[in-house]
Design a protein around this nucleic acid. Structure first.
Length: 258
DNA sequence: ATGGTAGAGTGTCTA
């Protein structure tokens, strides 16, 4: 079984790349973030003709998550228990979508960005993560994958230049502690052992040719419950997908389970 | 400190 996660930065502008990715890597379940589309705007035809089912939660403009699965997808859930809201519920709910796909509970997560450390969005980010942690603790005994854009670089080596992030979000002790709490509870970063750093990233800003110079961040993760982590045989980052014109600013992350 | 790029949609907002 092959699971992937990708911050696609608009599913409508990159549907050809989504379909090519599914086929190129023979993916069973793909979690997307920043789909930037309402349900009625989803480009479903090509995906369905490839044999995939789609579940999504989203609004136009920003946010939006989806699960694309060719394995039976059941128990679809928008948001998690006690998920905090910021702004309209529809916008908040476009950050987390869970379903059981082929027996594995997969959550497509788009963790709040936080914007600035003195911004209310930063407080919301920490609260959102703590509430997710509380909910996710109940899923530790199942085969669970918490996948997506965490908007946290847990280690200094996950940042191309820590000096540039001295006053930024994504690297603050509180954000890193929030991420670590999932590991303390028993979740496992199943990708890092297969893609050791430094200089291994999943996101490169569009500005200033950051990808061409490999000036990026590692902020997209697959956290597995213990039983899921034990099934992981391989993982990789499809860095090539970030190259060239028309790419998302994130690369897909792909995990194989036996 | 600012600006650089990209995507949503026409005004800016978000990242």
């Amino acid at each position: 079984m092959r699971i992937a996660t990708w911050n696609v930065n608009s599913i409508r502008s990159r549907i050809d790349r989504v379909e090519a990715l599914l086929q190129r890597h023979d993916i069973d379940v793909l979690a997307l973030q920043e789909t930037k589309a309402r349900e009625d705007q989803l480009p479903l035809m090509g995906l369905q003709s490839l044999g995939y089912d789609v579940a999504a939660a989203g609004v136009s403009q920003w946010n939006g998550v989806a699960l694309i699965s060719r394995l039976p997808m059941v128990d679809v859930q928008v948001g998690f228990e006690a998920m905090p809201l910021f702004g309209e519920p529809a916008v908040a709910e476009a950050r987390a979508l869970g379903a059981v796909c082929g027996g594995v509970r997969v959550w497509s997560l788009y963790v709040p960005n936080g914007r600035k450390v003195d911004d209310p969005h930063y407080v919301y980010k920490l609260e959102w993560l703590e509430r997710l942690r509380a909910a996710a603790a109940d899923w530790l005994e199942e085969d669970t994958a918490l996948v997506g854009d965490w908007n946290i670089a847990p280690r200094d080596e996950d940042v191309f230049d820590m000096a540039q992030f001295a006053t930024s979000t994504h690297v603050t002790p509180r954000e890193r502690a929030a991420f670590q709490h999932f590991l303390d509870d028993g979740y496992v970063d199943v990708v890092r052992p297969h893609t050791p750093g430094p200089d291994v990233y999943t996101y490169w800003d569009y500005y200033r040719q950051r990808f061409e110079r490999n000036r990026g961040l590692r902020i997209d993760f697959v956290l597995g419950s213990p039983s899921l982590a034990a099934r992981v045989t391989h993982a990789f980052i499809d860095t090539e997908e970030r190259a060239g014109k028309g790419a998302s600013d994130h690369a897909p992350v792909i995990v194989d389970l036996d």
